[in-house]
Design a protein around this nucleic acid. Sequence first.
DNA 1: ATGATATTGATAATCATTATCAATTAATTT
DNA 2: AAATTAATTGATAATGATTATCAATATCAT
Lengths: 149, 149
Amino acid sequence: MKEEQSLFANYLKSKGLKMTSARRTVLRAFIKSEGHLSAEDLLAAAKKIDPGLGQATVFRTLKLLSDAGLAQDACQEEGPRRYEHVYKQSHHDHLICIGCGKMIEFCHPEIEKAQNEIFKKFGFRGTGHKLELRGLCADCARKLDEENK
Amino acid sequence: MKEEQSLFANYLKSKGLKMTSARRTVLRAFIKSEGHLSAEDLLAAAKKIDPGLGQATVFRTLKLLSDAGLAQDACQEEGPRRYEHVYKQSHHDHLICIGCGKMIEFCHPEIEKAQNEIFKKFGFRGTGHKLELRGLCADCARKLDEENK
DNA sequence: ATGATATTGATAATCATTATCAATTAATTT
DNA sequence: AAATTAATTGATAATGATTATCAATATCAT
Ligand SMILES: [Zn+2]
Ligand SMILES: [Zn+2]
Ligand SMILES: [Zn+2]
Ligand SMILES: [Zn+2]
């Protein structure tokens, strides 16, 4: 928490940007948050700290947090963009049930390794990736089978 | 081509929907297309066949093609949704340069295999996945290094 | 051909995000 | 500590992509 604070502060200073109370508010709300949250979610959380906060500021600050390496956009389901913590957070990918929306986070080392091979093969300097597996969870698969019976 | 025609016709019939000239136009334009195209792209192509075609129809038909299994949405870069052929097309994933936008399609069997393991591990019935690797191509990496020199 | 129903294109509406801008605030310099 | 400079803010308008609405039209099983 304190660490994320100073990481963000350093980032801002390095870019000639200012640490403001609005940004502190958004950062605090983001740090307290969990999972994948949209700008709207974060605005709601931040307004509990400062009701006067504007929504544009949340969009702007979320982008800064992303540039600063504190946030990254999580799986791109339909709907608004969603962010999650990246600082001190282990990398993971997402498995989503297209029936009920349930989401599972996982990390598969071999996939990660294979991705590096791809980068090398095509002469790329890898910076990241997004992997999203989609399917039916056991419950939803069963339900579907019964319906089609 | 003829095959995609009849696949689509069958899909429509199975859903109680109608094969119309507008849908035939969109399908023809889609079949002739290559790569990843947006609704706007497809509208432009389809208007060359029938200038009176409405854009809403393209959005609607693209969704139908997707439901029918002829199209799927390709990598989700910023901007509008993009579709690509799926019928008789081998599966592939995408490698994108964040510098110049260059995109490479690849398929890595081990990644595919590992994904099936994940599905099994969590009791899912897999239906698909989207993997997007991001990085700098050799050219862009070199340019960046020189700038930061 | 007839009738029931799906479809069309035009248009308005929606949703998420960005741009604009005058007033305010933060960091620097005196 | 005040003045200076430039970035930031919140409100609001604008944008871009997509979806909803609806009266007129086209399709298809009968
Ligand atoms: Zn996650
Ligand atoms: Zn489920
Ligand atoms: Zn592709
Ligand atoms: Zn490049």
